[in-house]
């Protein structure tokens, strides 16, 4: 059995999750703090991947990344980077696709913290950065864990978007979900079965870990 699609899937999920920790947490923090009238618009845009068919998102990203578009041309001439049918392209589209899975729990976690925690830190002379990293983030561990795991698991299960942007290039863009489709197309059911079973077990174990850990963390009640 060819394990490469499974490794590629895990690699994509891991890189996407790391990118989303870097991108998603600041966005969630900004939204949690914002009182702007534009906030609902931004929230709606971030939530779009929850309701859009992945093929719709994939289609527009394919257009945007294509070497014939303005963005595609610029990336190719400036950075020699082609996003269509490439691993970086998969990562960027996965980040967009899984954005709500990171932003929503983290934003909800931050909004649920009492305002006085942030204010107490400010009155103790601490900068916003110190307050965020030493007071706010450590007190939303369950939300961070949920965001991280859901992003990871959601990326494992991607299909439509990956197919649109990445196609089916072995070792580059052929992730497990694509491999399953590929094997079924060629009537190779036993190989499809193995990929599918492995994905099923991994996904179940991940979700079980989230629920068990959050049960343990929520027992340590958040006192104020």
């Amino acid at each position: 059995m060819d394990y490469q699609p499974l490794w590629l899937t895990l690699k994509l999920a891991l890189v996407t999750t790391l990118c989303l920790l870097l991108v998603g947490i600041p966005i969630a923090a900004g939204l949690a703090k914002s009182k702007s009238k534009l906030k609902p618009i931004l929230e709606a845009i971030i939530s779009l991947p929850l309701v859009l068919p992945p093929s719709v998102l994939g289609f527009y990203l394919l257009l945007a990344f294509s070497p014939n578009s303005g963005l595609g041309k610029f990336l190719e001439s400036a950075f020699n980077l082609r996003l269509v049918f490439s691993f970086p392209g998969l990562v960027i589209s996965s980040v967009i696709y899984s954005l709500p899975f990171m932003v929503h729990p983290v934003q909800a976690g931050l909004e649920a913290l009492p305002r006085s925690l942030r204010e107490a830190s400010q009155t103790l002379g601490k900068s916003n950065w110190q307050t965020f990293t030493q007071v706010l983030l450590p007190n939303i561990k369950p939300a961070l864990l949920t965001g991280t795991i859901l992003t990871f698991a959601h990326t494992l299960g991607e299909f439509g978007l990956v197919l649109m942007i990445g196609g089916n290039i072995p070792g580059v863009t052929k992730v497990a979900s694509i491999a399953i489709y590929d094997e079924v197309e060629s009537l190779n059911f036993s190989a499809a079965h193995r990929y599918a079973a492995i994905l099923l077990v991994i996904s179940f174990v991940i979700l079980l870990t989230v629920y068990l850990t959050n049960k343990r963390l929520s027992k340590q009640k958040l006192p104020v």
Binding site: P114, S116, L117, A120, S121, Q122, K126, V135, N139, V224
Partner: peptide, 20 residues
Amino acid sequence: LPAQKRNIGFVFQDYALFPN
């Protein structure tokens, strides 16, 4: 002056101790 630059001690009604 921002709160950080005002040398005050503030005791909040809910205490606002850092749980972590």
